[in-house]
Amino acid sequence: MSNTLILKSSILGNYSQSNQIIDQVVEGKTNVTVRDLAADPIPVLTMEIATALRGSTDDLTSELKQIVQLSDELIAELQNADQVVIAAPMYNFTIPTQLKNYFDLIARAGVTFKYTDTGPVGLIENTKVVVLTTRGGVHKDTPRDSMHAYLQTILGFMGMTDVEFVYAEALNMGDEPAQQSRTTALDTLGALV
Rank of each mutant, 00 (worst) to 15 (best):
L64C: 14
I67V: 15
V68F: 07
Q69S: 12
Q69L: 15
S71H: 14
S71D: 14
D72A: 08
D72N: 15
E73Y: 10
E73D: 15
L74E: 11
L74V: 02
I75W: 05
A76S: 14
E77I: 02
L78T: 07
Q79I: 03
N80F: 08
N80C: 06
D82T: 05
V85G: 00
A87I: 01
A88P: 01
M90S: 08
M90Y: 02
Y91V: 04
Y91A: 06
Y91R: 08
Y91E: 09
I95Q: 01
I95N: 02
I95D: 00
T97P: 03
T97H: 02
Q98N: 14
L99K: 03
F103P: 00
F103L: 05
F103M: 03
L105T: 03
I106S: 08
R108S: 05
A109P: 06
G110V: 10
G110T: 11
G110L: 11
V111R: 07
F113Y: 09
F113W: 00
K114A: 11
Y115Q: 07
Y115R: 01
T116K: 04
T116W: 08
D117I: 09
T118S: 15
T118R: 12
P120N: 08
V121A: 12
V121R: 11
V121N: 09
G122K: 02
G122H: 03
L123Y: 01
T127C: 12
V130A: 01
V130C: 04
V131Y: 04
L132M: 02
T133R: 05
T134C: 07
R135G: 10
R135S: 15
G136I: 13
G137W: 12
H139M: 11
H139Y: 14
H139D: 06
D141Y: 10
P143F: 10
R144P: 11
R144F: 14
S146I: 15
M147V: 08
M147F: 14
M147R: 05
A149E: 13
Y150C: 04
L151R: 02
Q152D: 13
T153S: 12
T153E: 15
I154G: 00
I154F: 04
L155Y: 06
L155N: 02
G156Y: 01
M158R: 04
M158H: 07
G159V: 04
M160Y: 01
M160R: 05
T161E: 09
T161W: 03
D162S: 05
V163R: 06
F165I: 07
V166R: 00
A168L: 04
A168S: 05
M173V: 13
G174M: 10
G174F: 05
E176S: 11
A178W: 11
A178M: 12
Q180E: 15
S181Y: 07
R182V: 10
R182L: 12
R182C: 06
R182D: 04
T184V: 13
T184Q: 15
A185P: 09
A185W: 06
L186T: 08
D187M: 13
D187Q: 15
D187W: 02
L189S: 06
L189D: 05
